[in-house]
């Protein structure tokens, strides 16, 4: 076959060999992260095995583990996080269900409101609760006003229950957002068909909606669990001396006591706990992605 061979117009530049492989471009941001995040984290680990006296030992760990305050904090952290996660999941599921499937006027605005809510700091919730349930707050004021008693019955803000209430309030939207996204994927015709086949609402929720929402529930739940474990502002604002969690203990040891090694030990335990849960979260979201891709 006779090609008409003419020099190619316009694009005359010869192929320039690439001077460096593509992954080199990844290095600057990773290096930045290394300097301000990974390296400091490693130093925390290092400091936790370097007592002030010099040398290296795990003595600080033994010391911290032996403290009742540490064990209390650990227990509080885990219990409050688990409780807040369970509460957020239940509340978030119910609320998202209504927004998605029993549309009410202004539902769109509600969804937007949730987005805004997510971007406000957590301690605002505690601040609000102080006005509602605090010793001189609305609820107690109402009680003393109507009964004439000297003090109201609501005095749980400084207990784990107060922290729990605040965390459920604050973290519920974090469950709702992925759920609303998952619900949007459900074809409304599916629900209509299920209803026309005679399924009642609880059955539809259980057999049609829940399976679809389960991955998002799992992912949202584990994210909230991690965030609850790490929550600091809410606990700090209750000013509850009785409720110490691991982050509060880190703050107390480092800033109030000046015991860096002890703070680092607690931090290492906290990081380990969070990372383990975070790994779980990643695994779940990965599965979720995989399942979604498999369906697509």
């Amino acid at each position: 076959m006779a090609d008409v061979r003419l020099p190619f117009p316009r694009v005359a530049a010869p192929a320039r060999p690439r001077r460096f492989p593509g992954w080199v471009l990844v290095l600057p941001p990773v290096a930045a992260l290394g300097v301000v995040f990974l390296h400091p984290l490693a130093l925390v680990l290092w400091q936790s095995v370097s007592p002030d006296g010099g040398g290296h030992s795990f003595a600080a760990y033994g010391e911290v583990f032996a403290q009742a305050a540490f064990r209390d904090a650990l227990r509080n952290t885990v219990l409050i996080a688990a409780g807040a996660t369970a509460g957020s999941l239940a509340l978030g599921f119910a609320l998202a269900l209504v927004i998605a499937f029993v549309p009410l006027p202004g539902g769109k605005a509600l969804a937007r409101f949730i987005d805004v809510f997510l971007s406000f700091p957590s301690f605002l919730i505690t601040l609000a609760l102080l006005f509602v349930y605090g010793t001189a707050g609305i609820a107690n004021g109402l009680w003393t006003g109507t009964t004439g008693a000297a003090a109201g019955p609501f005095d749980f803000l400084h207990t784990p229950w107060g922290v729990l209430l605040a965390e459920i309030t604050y973290f519920t939207p974090f469950v709702m957002r992925p759920l609303l996204a998952a619900f949007a994927q459900i074809d409304p015709a599916q629900l209509d068909v299920a209803a026309s086949l005679g399924a009642r609402v609880p059955r539809i929720v259980r057999q049609v909606i829940l399976p679809e929402a389960l991955p998002s529930l799992a992912a949202g739940g584990s994210l909230v669990l991690v965030m609850c474990l790490n929550e600091f502002g809410i606990v700090l604002f209750t000013g509850a001396k009785g409720v110490t969690t691991l982050p509060v203990l880190v703050y107390g040891k480092a800033i109030l006591d000046g015991d860096y090694t002890g703070a680092c030990v607690v931090a290492v335990v906290d990081i380990a706990l969070s990372l383990a849960l975070y790994g779980l979260y990643r695994t779940l979201t990965h599965r979720l992605d995989g399942a979604r891709r498999a369906r697509a």
């Binding site: 090609d3 061979r5 003419l6 020099p7 190619f8 117009p9 316009r10 694009v11 530049a13 192929a15």
Partner: peptide, 16 residues
């Protein structure tokens, strides 16, 4: 080949 140019190793934006 595009015309008589071997473009196998050229990136897309140099192929014209």
């Amino acid at each position: 080949f595009i015309g008589d140019r071997d473009v196998t190793d050229l990136p897309p934006h140099r192929r014209g």
